[in-house]
Amino acid sequence: MVTANPYTAQGQYTALRFANEVINKGHQLKRIFFYADGVLIASRLNCPPSDEINLTKAWAKLAIEKDVELTVCVTAALKRGIVNQAEADRNALTGENLDPAFEISGLGQLTEAMLESDKLITFG
């Protein structure tokens, strides 16, 4: 679970390095669940200066290359303006901004992952 605010705290970066290492060592990573301020990572409009790491793209690379599921909590996301097309339509919003590597789902996805996994590591 990642709750760190992407460009305020270091936690997203620490989580990214940790997740990459988990996969490099051959372990199975069930899901990365983004919650609280951590959901802000999922906006494809995040645009840090070109000489700084783009954390959204770094997560997306992990998701695509290593087939890791990136799940964003819908309640936390909507509050903070992170929406896909379906949520934009449902809430009469004028645009969507979810990076395609991420998916929006419910908090039950965290609990389900806990039931199916040996370990949960939180990065806040």
């Binding site: 390095r17 940790f18 290492e21 490099n24 060592k25 370990k119 590591i121 939180t122 990065f123 806040g124």
Partner: peptide, 19 residues
């Protein structure tokens, strides 16, 4: 390093992030 970080999370029964 991060490799040992991952190993520690396996060596202990659980990890708790004290936030």
């Amino acid at each position: 390093d991060f490799s040992k970080f991952v190993e520690l999370t396996l060596a202990y029964d659980k990890s708790v992030s004290w936030l």
